[in-house]
């Protein structure tokens, strides 16, 4: 099963109702917004986040939006304060980011228009500590003690 499963992620109440198939017209403006955001990303590298939970969607609107965006190649899962599910859409640079709680309830559902979603990148502070972290793990493993010549040449 994919990490991102729209059917599970959206237990839309009207999904089983035959009438819910009608168009409420709220997906289109968001798609236009995504289009403008993509133009900005291509022109200046400016990233955009759209909070889908602040949209007055009618039954089926969200499904219609995600159906148009489609599914891309990348799926990712971040485990920090509960899972975060990331799905690339069929449009490169447009990501669906589903923040979920420890109890697997949706906290926020956002579209990110960026080369890579923010939460997938290492935090700069973490990156700064990465060398120290590796050294610590290396010394912890005992591998460097077993091979005396393995010490860094720069020292």
């Amino acid at each position: 099963m994919s990490v991102f499963d729209p059917a599970r992620a959206h237990p839309a109440p009207g999904a089983t109702c035959a009438r819910s198939a009608r168009e409420h017209g709220h997906a289109l403006p968001i798609l236009h917004e995504i289009r403008h955001a993509l133009e900005r990303l291509l022109a200046s590298g400016e990233e955009t986040r759209i909070d889908l939970q602040s949209m007055p969607f009618g039954p089926g609107d969200l499904e219609r939006l995600t159906a148009v965006l489609g599914q891309g190649e990348v799926q990712a899962r971040v485990e920090a304060l509960g899972p975060t599910l990331i799905q690339e859409t069929a449009i490169p640079g447009v990501w669906l980011v589903d923040y979920r709680s420890l109890e697997d309830q949706r906290l926020s559902y956002q579209i990110e228009i960026a080369t890579l979603p923010e939460i997938l990148r290492p935090r700069p502070e973490d990156l700064a500590e990465s060398l120290a972290a590796l050294d610590a793990r290396l010394s912890e493993s005992g591998l460097d003690a077993a091979a005396p010549n393995a010490s860094p040449s720069s020292s």
Binding site: Y99, S108, I119, R123, E125
Partner: peptide, 12 residues
């Protein structure tokens, strides 16, 4: 809480 976790907290 990790820094990514904190980022998530802020986003949500």
């Amino acid at each position: 809480l990790s820094r990514r976790g904190f980022l998530k907290l802020c986003a949500t």
